[in-house]
């Protein structure tokens, strides 16, 4: 991990010194791959289940209620509400590109999308569903039964339900961001400020944790390496992905950073022990905004609180 030293003040210490020709082969971030080929009927079934409120105990909320795939794959609220009306403890993660993370949830307690979906469906705080009852309910829907039959050659059951949701979530990738285009060789895809931001992002050491295809999401890290960042619990978090980060405020697991600038500034201080200059924050944010991709041909957009 190279750190470049160019003297005078700390705020100006990390002047970019990258070679003029960069290749994604040597970059610590790689472009989003194409979604794996899936039976269209399975995706249709997964989507139908994802938006189906019958999957919750109250019959009033679906996965889509907190993971709005029409906007940013999450919600614009700091905390979504539990079934009992209270606020949830952690900010909702976006479902976009979740398949590219090595674990799910802030605490990384779900190893797969299917495990995360099953846990969320049964959680009394999230959906509160009894999956057996849900299966019974769904079995009375001829259209869904037909889809299950078409996809699995069988009737609805727990594992098929969760598998279909997982398959759908695996398709929720947002390729096509400008940074990926730059990685692909399109040198005009990034402005000089954005490129400056990327180089600063690397030279400051943000890249140590936010790397890989999902710009994060592949390791755990303490949230207060040098100084407190946000709520102390959970103490160890799965490093969040920075894909579409510009569309998913508020930030951090407690949603305590309302803006990206604030989040960058606090991250520098808490995790790197660096007081970032305004310029550094500006260019890093400019770079982060280039990570916004598209879903179903439309750029991912922010969600209103």
């Amino acid at each position: 991990m190279a750190v470049f030293v160019c003297g005078r003040g700390l705020a100006e210490a990390f002047v970019p010194d990258f070679p003029s020709q960069l290749s994604s082969d040597v970059e610590p971030i790689t472009p989003i791959p194409s979604a794996p080929p899936v039976n269209p009927a399975k995706l249709e079934l997964g989507y139908r289940l994802f938006e189906d409120p019958r999957l919750s105990a109250s019959g009033t909320r679906s996965c889509l209620s907190c993971h709005d795939t029409r906007t940013n794959g999450a919600s614009g609220r700091r905390f979504d509400t539990a079934l009992d009306g209270s606020l949830l403890a952690l900010n909702t993660n976006t479902v976009f590109n979740a398949a590219l993370s090595f674990r799910q949830n802030w605490e990384g307690d779900a190893r797969t999308l299917e495990a995360q979906a099953e846990a969320a469906l049964q959680s009394p705080r999230f959906m509160g569903a009894d999956l057996n009852s849900v299966v019974q309910t769904l079995s009375k829907d001829p259209d869904l039964v037909r889809l299950f039959q078409q996809v699995y050659d069988g009737a609805p059951d727990r594992s098929r339900l969760v598998d279909a949701i997982g398959a759908y979530e695996r398709s929720l990738l947002t390729p096509g961001c400008r940074f990926d285009a730059w990685l692909g060789g399109d040198r005009a895809a990034l402005s000089s400020e954005e490129l400056d931001g990327y180089q600063t992002f690397k030279s400051l050491g943000c890249i140590s944790c936010h790397q890989g295809v999902n710009v994060g999401g592949n390791l755990f890290e303490r949230n207060d390496v040098f100084h407190p960042l946000a709520a102390q619990q959970p103490a160890v978090l799965r490093v969040p992905s920075l894909r579409n980060i510009a569309t998913t405020p508020p930030y951090f697991h407690d949603g305590s950073a309302a803006t990206l600038d604030d989040a960058v500034r606090r991250m520098g201080a808490a995790q790197l022990n660096v007081d970032l200059s305004v310029h550094q924050i500006t260019v890093i944010v400019a770079f982060l905004k280039t990570l916004t991709g598209s879903y179903e041909g439309h750029p991912v957009k922010g969600s209103t609180p």
């Binding site: 991990m1 190279a2 750190v3 030293v5 003297g7 210490a13 050491g205 140590s208 944790c209 592949n218 390791l219 755990f220 890290e221 303490r222 390496v225 160890v236 790197l272 022990n273």
Partner: peptide, 24 residues
């Protein structure tokens, strides 16, 4: 490996910063 990844990310970063500040 997960513990290593977490620690190594910080380790590499701090190495870089340590070298930077020591030199400076």
């Amino acid at each position: 490996v997960e513990r290593f990844s977490s620690d190594n990310a910080l380790l590499q970063n701090s190495f870089a910063y340590f070298g930077l500040f020591t030199s400076r």
